[in-house]
Amino acid sequence: MTTAPSTAPVQLPTPRPQARPARRAARRIVRRLPVWLLVTVLLVVMLYPQFWMIMGSFKTQTEFFANPTWALPEQFNLDNYIDAFTRGNVGINYRNSMLVTLPSVALIVLAGLAAGYALEIMIWKGRRQVLLFVMGGIMVPGQMILVPLFTVYFKIGITDSLLPMILTYTAMGIPLTTFLMAAYFRAIPREIFEAATVDGCGPLRSFFVIAMPLMKNSMLTIALIQFFSVFNDLLIALTFTTRPELATIQVGLLSLSDQYGSTQYGALFAAISINIIVLLIVFVFLNKKIMAGLAAGSVKG
C-alpha cells in the first residue's frame, strides 16, 4: 500500500518515527470508514424489511394495535403460522406451486435441449430460419396468448385443473430455452459428436449419451432461470386459477391480502415470512448457482 491516494482525509502533524505503523493503520481505517458506512446502510436497507416482517409474524393482534409497528414482538408465538396454514391455505399453495413449477421446468428444459440439438448439431436446410422463428416468441408477452388459450382450455374442459398452467408455462419458456440451448451447443466442439459417429454412434444416440451429460451444467442453469420465472409468475396463474384450491403461492398471497390484509395482519405476515424463510434456506445452499445462472440467462437473452 505504498501508492496511497493523494486525497488522504487526515493530515497529521510532524511524524515521529515509531508512531508510523500505528498512524498508517489509523489512516487506513479512516479512509475505509465511508466504505463501511455505505455498506452498513446498504445492508440495513436490504435486510431490515425482511427482519421486520419476520418479527411481525410473531405478534398478536393486540400488539399490532397497541405497540408501534417497529416494536419487537413480546413473545414468539406461532399462532399466526398455524393460522396461515389452516385458514390461509399456505400449504396447499406451496403444493400447487411445486406441482406446476416442477413439471413445467422439466418439460421446458427437455424440449429446449432436444430442439437446441436438432437446430445446432444436426445439419439441414432451413434450421437458421426455424431457430429465428422460435426466437421470435421470446418477446411476445403472455397477454397476447391468454384469451385464445383460455377459450381452448375451456372448450376441452381442463380449466378445473393445474394442466392449463403447466401447458402455458411450457409454451412461454420454450423460445428463450431453445435459443440458449442452441447457443450452448454452439460452444461445444463439433468434433466430439463427429468422433462418436466414427465410432458408430448414431445422432439420436449421441444426443442421449453425449449431449445430455455434456450439457448438465447448462441444463441446471436454465432450469434455475425457468424455475424462478414460473414460480414468480402471477399473470398466468391468476388467469387459470378457477377456484381457490388451484391457487399457487403468488395467487394465494394476493387473495390472503384481499381477505385478511386489513384486519388479520398476523396471518399475512406469517405467510410472507414463510416465503422469506423457505427461499432463504434454498438460497443459502444454492446462491452461487442461482446468481451465476440467472445472470448467464439474461446476458444471452
Binding site: 424489511p49 414460480f231 414468480n232 402471477l234 403461492i249 398471497l253 399475512l268 416465503n275 422469506i276 440467472l294
Partner: peptide, 16 residues
C-alpha cells in the same frame, strides 16, 4: 437475495 422472493410477497412487504 430479494430477487428470488415472490413479487407479490415483496409488494405486500412494502405495503406493510
Amino acid at each position: 437475495f430479494p430477487m428470488v422472493l415472490p413479487t407479490v410477497a415483496v409488494a405486500l412487504l412494502f405495503k406493510s
